[in-house]
Amino acid sequence: MSTCRLGVLLGDGIGPEITPAAVAVVDAALAAVGAPAIEWVELPMGLAAIPEHGSALPASTLEALAGTDGWLLGPVDGVAYPEPQRSQLNPSGALRKHFDLYANVRPARAFGRAIGRAVVPGADLVIVRENTEGFYADRNTFAGTGEFMPTPDVAVTIGIITRAGVERIAVAAFELARRRRKHLTIVHKANVLRLSMGLFRDVCREVGERYPDVVVDDLHIDAMTVHLVRRGADFDVVVAENMFGDILSDLTGELAGSLGIAPSLNSSDTRAMAQAAHGSAPDIAGRDIANPIAMILSSAMLLDWLGNRRGDERLVDAARVVDDAVRAVVDGGTSTRDLGGTATTSSFMAAVVEHIAAGG
């Protein structure tokens, strides 16, 4: 198989610390399985890009990304941007919208030594979040946003649910469930939003008829939060609209131990973007104490996606090597302070690379 070209967008806040850590771990894993090295293409994005390019997401970056197989996106801190960039769609949302990255897959799996930090020690589930419509006004319309104010005292938000949008995220969720424990839970609020959430629920159920081997149930969003806390280990794959999926995935990240271990992958049928589920943590930026696990595991998800798409088992194996190495290092007693340890960003990365180089 030919060499992969992957973009690298360092991001804001802790991004320039955790994103290079992910690159280093991926390179080590590829070498360990005998896969060709990745051609990394670092591109301007975020606060650092504004002085030179006048934009947090330059047109040249979008053009370059279109020629890659995928990319890593570091955390984004849009509120730190100067105007007019602050009021514009932030790079994360803009990339999802521009490349139609409709599936946001967010696993939540507790770590062995992190059990003391995990609210649900047995958690091993995946939130599959629709990424292009729903109640996220910054990406649910072709032009402008789905928010407006007819008067200074009235604000209106439009939630968009389409059959086509629900069907494709439902297919992605059922395909994932079929590869896991064959259980899918649809999350909605059809008892109140009868038309929009009713359509989401019903189309998911229709898609489910194509997957008779997958057990399907559904829960209202408010009830789901309770069930996750009380019996989160019972869930496998959860599919939800954009905002519900965002909220639930933050919850499940903490239930598993920390948002610092919560990875995610944004994908279409042809492109994918690895992006940690957490934010840019500007309060700890530059101090070498951020947890790089979420970014590292997000990169592993990208390798797995690429390997399955290309039919290259070496990339799939490299993804498994990354995941196993991160967990082995944590189980061995090395972790950053959010998991109760003392490791720095760089020392944790070095420990994972060393574990991989030593053959696991």
Score class of each variant (00 low, 15 high):
residue 5 R to L: 08
residue 7 G to H: 00
residue 9 L to F: 08
residue 12 D to K: 02
residue 14 I to W: 04
residue 15 G to Q: 12
residue 16 P to L: 07
residue 17 E to A: 10
residue 18 I to K: 01
residue 22 A to K: 10
residue 27 D to Y: 01
residue 29 A to V: 10
residue 30 L to M: 13
residue 34 G to C: 01
residue 35 A to W: 09
residue 36 P to S: 03
residue 36 P to F: 01
residue 41 V to G: 00
residue 42 E to L: 03
residue 44 P to H: 00
residue 44 P to Q: 02
residue 44 P to E: 03
residue 44 P to F: 00
residue 45 M to L: 14
residue 45 M to Y: 00
residue 47 L to G: 14
residue 48 A to F: 08
residue 48 A to V: 13
residue 49 A to I: 01
residue 50 I to Y: 07
residue 51 P to F: 02
residue 53 H to S: 06
residue 54 G to I: 09
residue 66 A to R: 13
residue 69 D to T: 03
residue 72 L to I: 13
residue 77 D to Q: 15
residue 77 D to I: 09
residue 80 A to K: 10
residue 88 Q to I: 04
residue 88 Q to Y: 06
residue 89 L to P: 04
residue 92 S to D: 09
residue 93 G to F: 07
residue 96 R to I: 04
residue 98 H to N: 12
residue 101 L to Q: 04
residue 101 L to E: 04
residue 106 R to G: 01
residue 107 P to G: 02
residue 109 R to L: 09
residue 111 F to G: 05
residue 113 R to S: 15
residue 113 R to I: 10
residue 114 A to D: 09
residue 114 A to N: 10
residue 120 V to Q: 13
residue 120 V to L: 09
residue 122 G to V: 11
residue 131 N to M: 07
residue 136 Y to F: 12
residue 143 A to C: 08
residue 144 G to L: 10
residue 149 M to S: 13
residue 150 P to E: 07
residue 150 P to Y: 04
residue 153 D to E: 15
residue 156 V to L: 13
residue 157 T to D: 07
residue 158 I to R: 13
residue 159 G to D: 06
residue 163 R to G: 03
residue 169 I to T: 07
residue 170 A to T: 08
residue 171 V to F: 03
residue 172 A to M: 04
residue 172 A to I: 03
residue 178 R to V: 03
residue 181 R to A: 09
residue 183 H to K: 13
residue 183 H to N: 11
residue 183 H to S: 13
residue 185 T to H: 00
residue 186 I to C: 00
residue 189 K to W: 00
residue 189 K to C: 05
residue 189 K to P: 02
residue 189 K to H: 03
residue 194 R to Y: 01
residue 196 S to T: 15
residue 198 G to Q: 02
residue 201 R to G: 00
residue 203 V to H: 00
residue 203 V to L: 02
residue 205 R to M: 12
residue 210 R to E: 14
residue 213 D to V: 00
residue 216 V to D: 00
residue 218 D to K: 13
residue 219 L to S: 14
residue 219 L to N: 14
residue 225 T to I: 05
residue 232 G to M: 05
residue 235 F to W: 10
residue 236 D to E: 14
residue 237 V to L: 06
residue 240 A to V: 01
residue 244 F to C: 02
residue 250 D to M: 08
residue 255 L to S: 08
residue 265 L to C: 09
residue 267 S to Y: 07
residue 268 S to A: 15
residue 268 S to T: 14
residue 269 D to N: 11
residue 270 T to P: 04
residue 271 R to H: 13
residue 271 R to F: 07
residue 280 S to H: 13
residue 282 P to N: 11
residue 283 D to I: 05
residue 286 G to E: 06
residue 289 I to R: 11
residue 291 N to Q: 08
residue 291 N to P: 08
residue 292 P to E: 09
residue 295 M to T: 15
residue 298 S to E: 12
residue 299 S to E: 06
residue 304 D to S: 13
residue 307 G to L: 07
residue 307 G to V: 10
residue 315 L to I: 01
residue 317 D to E: 14
residue 326 V to F: 07
residue 328 A to W: 11
residue 328 A to E: 14
residue 332 G to V: 11
residue 338 D to G: 06
residue 340 G to F: 05
residue 340 G to Q: 05
residue 354 E to Q: 15
residue 355 H to C: 10
residue 356 I to S: 06
residue 358 A to I: 08
residue 358 A to F: 08
